[in-house]
């Protein structure tokens, strides 16, 4: 053997698995950005599945790794991976009209994870009550829209009313659909948490 192997500090299996799951969840969320569905309530604004990714990150990875997954999503997008809406990428998106939403995702996922799992250790999401899951996702949605609207308002120098209408109300109804979808995914047999 030609290399001195004593100095190599291996990343433990558990950390490696969590890192990889977080990275793949971030990539999945980027893939969701390409998938749009007709909005049942407002056909003019199609639904993209990205926020579903925030829900799933919190629910399946917990507060720490779920939040980390969203940090990876935002960072990879800022550094050029086409993961934002419309396959967008670049640091500019953070300073754009949807920058507030992007910045909110790590906080929202961490909050959802904390409500679903508590702060010590992960639980099996299938065993979590419907009320708790819905409450977690609703709280996450509030964080997303609060930051999203405030940043839109600040960046684009509009009135607050314009920001609420333009960046919030047009999209909020679709979030209920995504919450229902996330509930269905948690209850389906297809996905195993561990």
């Amino acid at each position: 053997m030609s290399t001195a192997t004593d100095s190599v500090d291996l990343v433990g299996d558990e950390v490696a698995v969590n890192l990889v799951r977080a990275a793949l969840l971030a990539a999945l969320m980027g893939a969701f950005a390409f998938v749009s569905f007709p909005n049942p309530l407002n056909p003019a604004v199609p639904v993209t599945a990205q926020v579903l990714g925030v829900f799933l990150a919190g629910i399946y990875l917990g507060p720490a790794w779920g939040g980390f997954a969203m940090v990876l999503y935002v960072l990879a997008g800022a550094l050029g991976a086409p993961v934002f809406s419309g396959a967008g990428a670049g640091l500019g998106e953070i300073f754009g009209p949807t920058g507030g939403y992007l910045v909110s995702y790590p906080f929202a996922a961490a909050l959802i994870g904390a409500v679903v799992h508590g702060v010590d250790g992960l639980v099996d999401p299938e065993g979590v009550s419907v009320a708790r899951l819905v409450g977690a996702m609703a709280a996450g949605t509030v964080v997303i829209y609060a930051l999203g609207i405030v940043v839109y308002w600040y960046y684009l120098d509009t009135s607050l009313v314009a920001a609420i209408v333009g960046a919030g109300l047009a999209f909020v109804p679709a979030e209920a659909v995504k919450m229902a979808a996330a509930m269905g995914i948690v209850r389906s047999e297809e996905v195993q948490a561990t």
Partner: peptide, 16 residues
Amino acid sequence: VDGVDVSDAPVAARTT
């Protein structure tokens, strides 16, 4: 691996 238990020397095992 080369006489050494892999659980004692994972890096050596994985490079060999």
